[in-house]
Design a protein around this nucleic acid. Structure first.
Length: 296
DNA sequence: TAGGCGTGGCC
DNA sequence: TGGCCAAGCCT
């Protein structure tokens, strides 16, 4: 029996009420959303904005409404359907998820955290999210939104540490409402608050249901004081080169000649390195005749 | 554990 | 204008 800290209700009540009124109407939150649809959405949403995911998710679910349908297709079809969502290895992993679910779980998305966590591309966050959102279980669902909300609300700093700490997990668990259905609603509600109100750049504190309890706000919203938080340049990197090469294959009907890849990136050394990487990752299939294709 | 891994919109 | 950011995972 877990005991909820007495002051936790200061946050949970108002945030649950706020969510009831302001939650976005997203298809993977609809009453008829399946665990498979929720898993697909979680993988697609990793590091990717909702607006870009929506159309791809709809088409994906129309085409592959259950894991068996996707598992029956070549992985390259998943990569093609992934379009420009980015991080295309996720498409490969989602396809591998479909195969594993079909073969190991009888076509049903598992409902235990450990079995979810064992699926390809499913880490601590996604396993907790699917267990919570699809199966209404009680888990600390700690994503970038929630980490930021807790950093401000409880810790009183603008941003959480670069990498997730054990203290953050402990804190998130201490705030979970005792009963599972409420904990599941709380999980999605805090996340939504971070996405819509307690945003990274310009938080809308005026719209915040817990502004009166916010440690960061009460401290005068002190700016982040710590090491630089990122530095992911992109132009000219291998990542951009990989993206260009894969786009050539996505846009082609079938296999392409090497020359079609060569014109996509001028630096031959970097191009070959990137192509080797794509092949090593299983995103590109080098054919015996010298052409290249999406994997089969 | 820090770094690699896409893409595009925003202020 | 361009750095920052978006429901992370894997090695």
């Amino acid at each position: 029996m877990t005991v909820t800290p007495p002051n936790a209700v200061r946050y949970t009540g108002p945030i649950l009420d706020w969510y009831a009124e302001h939650a976005r109407d997203l298809p993977w939150r609809a009453p008829d959303a399946t665990p498979w649809g929720i898993l697909v959405s979680e993988i697609m949403l990793q590091q990717t904005p909702v607006a870009r995911v929506l159309p791809v998710w709809r088409e994906w679910m129309r085409r592959w409404p259950a894991p068996e349908a996707l598992a029956a297709e070549p992985s390259g079809e998943a990569v093609r359907a992934w379009g420009r969502l980015g991080y295309p290895r996720r498409a490969l992993r989602l396809h591998a998820c479909a195969v594993a679910i079909t073969e190991r779980h009888g076509g049903r998305v598992p409902d235990s955290y450990d079995e979810l966590r064992a699926l390809p591309g499913v880490g601590a966050y996604t396993a907790a999210a699917v267990a919570s959102f699809a199966y209404r279980q009680r888990h600390a669902v700690l994503d970038t939104n929630v980490r930021r909300v807790l950093a401000r609300l409880i810790t009183g700093v603008e941003y959480p540490p670069k990498t997730q700490t054990a203290a953050e997990v402990t804190l998130a668990e201490s705030l979970l409402p005792p009963d599972a259905p409420t904990a599941a609603r709380w999980a999605v509600a805090v996340m939504e608050l971070g996405a819509l109100v307690c945003t990274a750049r310009t938080p809308r504190c005026v719209d915040c249901p817990v502004i009166g309890s916010c440690a960061w706000h009460q401290a005068g919203r002190p700016p982040y004081d710590g090491p630089p938080r990122r530095g992911q340049t992109y132009a000219g990197t291998d990542r951009q080169c990989r993206g260009r090469l894969l786009a050539v294959l996505r846009n082609a009907e079938g296999p392409v000649e090497k020359a079609a890849l060569d014109v996509a990136w001028s630096d031959p050394v970097q191009r070959e390195r990137a192509l080797d990487g794509l092949v090593a990752d299983g995103l590109v299939d080098p054919l015996e005749d010298g052409r290249y294709a999406l994997p089969s």
